[in-house]
Simulated assay, not measured.
Amino acid sequence: MNPPLILVLNGPNLNMLGTREPELYGTETLDDIEALCAETGDALDLAIDFRQSNLEGELISWVHEARGRASGIVINPAGYSFTSIALMDALLAVDLPVVEVHLTNSYRRESFRHHSYVSRAAQGVICGLGPHGYALALRGIAGILADAEDA
Rank of each mutant, 00 (worst) to 15 (best):
R120I: 12
I141C: 06
V74T: 04
G41S: 13
E28P: 00
T83W: 10
E58T: 01
L30K: 07
L96Q: 14
Y117L: 10
A66K: 03
G79I: 03
I48T: 08
E28D: 13
G72D: 02
Q52I: 09
G68V: 08
N76A: 05
A148D: 14
V8L: 03
S106C: 09
E34K: 12
D89N: 15
R109L: 07
Q52N: 14
G79V: 03
E56G: 10
N54A: 05
H64C: 04
A148F: 05
I60N: 03
D89S: 12
A78N: 07
L24S: 02
E100P: 08
T83M: 11
E34V: 09
A43H: 11
V63P: 01
L129Y: 14
I126D: 05
A66G: 05
D89F: 12
G18C: 02
L55F: 15
N54P: 07
Y80N: 08
A148M: 02
N76H: 03
I144A: 13
L24Y: 03
A122H: 12
R51P: 01
L136R: 10
S119Y: 06
S111T: 15
A86N: 12
L103H: 02
F50M: 13
E100T: 08
L138K: 04
R113S: 14
T19D: 06
E149Y: 08
E65L: 05
R120L: 12
G26E: 09
E34D: 13
D95P: 05
S106R: 05
G57Y: 03
E110K: 04
H115G: 10
D42K: 15
L36W: 09
D147E: 12
R109A: 08
R108K: 15
G68P: 10
R113N: 14
G124W: 07
V99Y: 04
Y25E: 13
G26T: 03
M88G: 00
F82Q: 14
M16K: 13
Y80W: 10
E110L: 04
E149I: 00
E23S: 14
L17G: 08
G57Q: 06
N15C: 12
I75F: 05
G57C: 00
E149G: 08
E149W: 06
A66Q: 01
N15E: 13
I60F: 03
P22W: 04
E58G: 04
M16I: 07
E28I: 06
P3M: 08
L17R: 01
P4H: 09
A135L: 00
Y25C: 09
E23N: 11
L36C: 11
I85Q: 09
I85G: 02
G11P: 00
S106N: 07
S81K: 04
A93L: 13
F112V: 05
R120A: 15
T29M: 04
A86P: 07
G140I: 06
D45Q: 15
S119D: 13
A142K: 11
D150N: 10
L59E: 11
S61K: 01
V125Q: 03
I6H: 07
L46K: 13
